[in-house]
Design a protein around this nucleic acid. Structure first.
Lengths: 362, 362
DNA sequence: AAGAAGTGGGAACGCGCTTTCCCAGCCAGT
DNA sequence: ACTGGCTGGGAAAGCGCGTTCCCACTTCTT
């Protein structure tokens, strides 16, 4: 990757590199019109492209923002990524992508890599985990993030703070009211449903999943329903599918008994799992919502055409990404309270969306 | 973004920066064991993180690979991005993301930005367009790419070469046999379907769409069927939906006539459009495949649980991303024919996958 | 008309790192 | 014992740019 340099441009224009630099990027000092034109002309006759690395080195800031997701092909993360991308464009910065599969160790590496690249800020989108085996990883991740922040980096994490992180300067958390929304979903569901509830959750310790489970149980309790049983499996489509198979077996067993089969309403802690579970039920010959109702969480766009339409909680994924990114933007000036506030992200809120998949069978 | 520097580490370890540099990254020269240990210890006692920008500047190569997509939230691109990401990790590089919405002008800007950042290579995943209004944009994009290649950059574009690009050095195209596969889909569909075909395509001039349309027509012709009518709309879900509404109206009109309603098989040039079309039909009270069959293209993972299961052409999206990325990797040595070949990407092939959505109604 | 204030351009240093070149020791060879 | 080839470490020159400082020159003061 060689290319023409500022010095070459300057030489061609017959000026000093300093002058060339001043005209080719917004500097405080504006060289004279005629000279500026000469430089600009020289620049594009040479096809000059400024070296962002050198600029970054000199200015010590890179215009990069790092995004950490579990898996970019997961529509949940893809939607967030879109928001991040948009906000980044607003700020005229580029996004650096890292996918980690969810392990704190890999997340730590990603943070280190971003730090090495001197990314101005980092957005962490994956769910936090507090499982025992992630203990060490979390600690290391927290340490890495702290160091990054101490060096002036800004980080935003969606959902939960990184377990053990202590940095306060430049450390933002975009709160997602998973628990509250799950609670609302539970109560609304309960209003139209007399049968039992089962929760299909992710692995214990996955904070996002745990919040949704807890919120749902709370909601149930608030309306005087007994707590739902919780099935744990992977936080993705196949996890949902497996849980779905188990439930299908159970439903069929119950149905063959003589007592009236109790209707079951399944709450999967995210849409993708819900779809997996639904697929499993269907593969076992069960129909939704006739044989079991099912609800998800997230309201993934691509899944909205799914039939039966999935009851879920709409989360403004794109906004979440956008807000997280904006939160890491340079504050205008701490002096001006009003302007400073406008930079602070709006509060995230979701919306329970009941659809066909949980309509009580007539 | 300040942090401790190599010089500081060197000073703490009581060696010269040169030595510190040699031990902290793979250099040809390996300093003595004791010295190396001292340096390493100094490094992590200081929490040293090398400045990739400075490294890049000195080595003139950044370890960055730029990825250009239309929209990262589109599952098609997300899947490709996953492949790119994986390959990038293999090569210990990071991916820089740019989403352009499909316009050549924005793509050109993205290329320029990547060039500025001195990305080692660029992968362009979006479909090429040859519409008249994109003429100028394409030319500029081509020029920008040429310059990038001339400066030693490597680019891979999936599907079609950029219209007007002339660079040969370091310019790869990952061929996707859209036309052939669409043809095969047509013939296999025709084998089980006596009625008419309609194609729901993207805007004319979108090369990927055009290829699939053309291939489908060719396939039809090969088996002696008359060409399908082509409806054009946006290359996304809502485009499919709109086309679906039109078709629904047509189907219903035909049905109300006295002649037996001719069965219709709709081929949407990508899965997302197919889903949109299906949703439209359903919203008009039509059922699939009873009232109309429908097929897509891509076999998007998230859509596989869609009901009725969508007939489509499976494309190894992730591999496409992977191959494109690998194609831009530094060749080992042109001298060694065998090794050189192994770096060249495998050939992309797809697979016609017939499912429920096109089962002839009994 | 002489000095102050202002304007516009250049020289030079530094950002953090790699890499070439050089030099001081060390070994083996005659 | 003396020299030639190695080895391992340091000095220094960039990589491409931003920026501070400095200087020559113009324009407005009293």
């Amino acid at each position: 990757m060689a290319a023409s340099t500022l010095t070459e441009v300057a030489r061609l224009a017959g000026v000093s590199p300093a002058t060339a630099s001043r005209v080719l990027n917004g500097s405080a000092r504006k060289p004279g019109k005629d000279i500026a034109d000469r430089v600009r002309q020289a620049a594009d006759s040479l096809g000059y492209v400024p070296n962002a690395q050198a600029q970054g080195l000199a200015k010590s800031s890179s215009g990069l923002i790092g995004l950490i997701v579990h898996d970019i092909a997961d529509p949940y993360f893809a939607a967030i990524a879109r928001g991040v991308q948009e906000a980044a464009r607003e700020q005229r910065r580029m996004v650096l992508l890292a996918t980690t599969g969810g392990g704190p160790a890999e997340e730590k590496e990603a943070v280190a890599a971003f730090a090495a690249r001197r990314a101005d800020s980092i957005v962490i989108a994956g769910s936090r985990s507090c499982r025992d085996e992630d203990q060490d990883g979390n600690a290391e991740l927290a340490a890495e993030l702290d160091r990054y922040c101490r060096n002036g980096g800004r980080v935003a994490v969606v959902g939960h703070p990184v377990v053990g992180a202590t940095a306060s300067e430049g450390y933002h958390v975009v709160e997602v009211p998973n628990q509250e929304l799950a609670g609302r979903l539970a109560t609304e569901l309960a209003a139209g449903w007399d049968g039992d509830f089962v929760i299909v959750g992710g692995p214990e310790g996955l904070l996002t999943s745990d919040d949704r489970v807890r919120g749902f149980q709370d909601g149930l309790e608030r309306v005087g329903r007994r707590p739902a049983e919780v099935l744990r499996s992977a936080f993705n489509r196949s996890g949902g599918y497996e849980a779905g198979l188990q439930l299908a077996a159970r439903i069929k067993a119950a149905r063959s008994g003589e007592t009236a089969a109790p209707q079951l309403c399944i709450f999967a802690v995210n849409d993708v799992m819900a779809i997996g579970a639904a697929a499993a039920l269907r593969s076992e010959g069960l129909r939704i919502p006739r044989d079991a109702a099912i609800a998800g969480f997230d309201d993934i766009e691509t899944l909205r055409d799914f039939r039966p339409a999935l009851s879920t909680v709409r989360l403004p994924l794109e906004d979440i990404g956008r807000f997280a990114t904006r939160a890491t933007g340079r504050q205008p000036d701490t002096g001006n309270g009003e302007e400073g506030e406008s930079a602070s992200p709006g509060v995230i809120t979701g919306e329970v969306t009941l659809r066909r998949s949980t309509e009580a069978a007539a």
